[in-house]
Each structure stands twice: as structure tokens, then as C-alpha cells.
Design a protein around this nucleic acid. Sequence first.
DNA 1: AATTTGCGAAACCGAATGGTTGCTCATATA
DNA 2: TATATGAGCAACCATTCGGTTTCGCAAATT
Lengths: 123, 123
Amino acid sequence: MVAHIFATEQFHINDAQMRRDVFQAIADPTRRAIIALIALQAMTPNAIAEHFDTTRQAISKHLRVLTECELVKQEHQGREIYYQLELDKMKEIDKWLEQFRKIWENRFQQLDQLLATIKKQKK
Amino acid sequence: MVAHIFATEQFHINDAQMRRDVFQAIADPTRRAIIALIALQAMTPNAIAEHFDTTRQAISKHLRVLTECELVKQEHQGREIYYQLELDKMKEIDKWLEQFRKIWENRFQQLDQLLATIKKQKK
DNA sequence: AATTTGCGAAACCGAATGGTTGCTCATATA
DNA sequence: TATATGAGCAACCATTCGGTTTCGCAAATT
């Protein structure tokens, strides 16, 4: 069907240009575990895969997603590739949370004031 | 200043197979927009849907996901249902970020010390 | 009582996701 | 030079996801 082909081509974006979403990247529990694992020191795909119950290829795919959204950086060393966490990208999540942190801190202050008022009235 | 909460709250399994993940919930851009929309005041599905280019039913599905992972709370009022953000659940994301925030704050301090040392040596 | 309105549930569809196996390729090592 | 090893890619598969349309139902309005 012609329409189908057009629709498919429309969605076919070059892999190199593909930009992933950080939030989509951390949605997967395995990827979150990988992130936590390499947070302190860079690791190779094989070393990472040893910590999980899946194949190295599956981990490789996860690393590709993490690399595409720039949550992770490669460092080639011979035939080994060390994957390192990009903390700056993690801050992007923190930045999104900021707007809500403002709200809950504000509510906390309000509660604090309320408690203070009650305390005052008791005296 | 708000004291940090150290308690390690576990993900509790709600209804057998309905175990939704907060991270999976915020992976979708529309759901993030909904969250931001109702952060300050509760809204009905119809009111929310007006802000998007999809059907009310699609929004309803998103609200179901958000409700299942308890990011959102319902408040029935006649035949209308007001959806309200559960800020406490948002803190769960913040708590996950905590471990990384520790790292980047530590690195910042290290940089700071390095700069101080250089400054000292110049004198 | 009849109709409108607000909302969720179900069925369906195409696209995306996460995993597997098999392959190629480059770099070490014997 | 021959072989072992680290790693990404491609093809395939089952499942999930996000959206639509259709529908049912309870609460408001007429």
C-alpha cells in the first residue's frame, strides 16, 4: 500500500541524527540500573552485562539508547569501550523537577507556619 | 531549610499486575504536560483535554496510568472528577536523583578546592 | 420523562520496545 | 599467522504503547 510506505518513510530518521528523550531513557529499569552502576566509574559493556540476567547484546542496545540521549559517553581504549555517565544530562531531570520542588517546599513552609500558629495559640 | 527524608520507601505493589512505575509514567511527554498542568490546581479530564490536540479518551487513558502509579489522585464531585497531583509521589523521582546529586555536588566541591589551591599557589 | 453532558471501558490498529540469535569487524594474543 | 575476544549491527519476534472509534452509564438539565 502506497500510503503505508509514505508513512513509514516519514518516520525513518537517520540513526545518527536520532535524538532520544532522557525521560524515555530512564523509563526502563535495566537502564536505570546501568546508570547507577556506571555512575562512579566507567565500565565496558561486558563488565556491565555481567551484572544482569540478559545477553550482552541487549545491554549494548540499552547503551545505544543512553548514548543517543547523551546520558552516557563513550571512551575508546583499544578494542574496549568504557561507558561513562554524563552527570550534566542527569541534571536535566533535576531541572524538570525544580518546578515541583518549588511547590512542595512552599506547601511545607505553609504547614510550618500553620504549626507555628497553633503552637503560639497554645501558650 | 527543609530536612531531607532518608526513609527508603519501597515501591508497593498495588493491585497484583497493575504495578506501574513512576518513571514509566513520566516517560510520555503528554503525561508530563498533564502533570505540569494540574500541579497547581486540580482539573477535570475535559478541562485537561482542551489543552491538547488529542481526544478526551486518550487523555483519560493517560490519567489512568498516572492514577495507577499514584502520581495523581481523583476527587469526585458530582459527575465531575478532579485530578490532582500527588506531590509526594513526585518526591520519589527526586529521591532517585539524590544519589547522583551527591556525586555532582561532590565533583563541584573538588573543582572548587582545585581552584582554591591554584589561587593559593599564585600568591 | 427525555435529553444532554462528563466520564471510563472495550475493541481495534500501527508503531515502538525489549529481547533473542546470528553475523561481521577490529583488536589482542598464542 | 591463526585464533580468541570485545563490541556493534541486522533480522526477527512477542509484547506494550498511544491513539482512535464506539459504546454504556450515571449525573445534570430541559
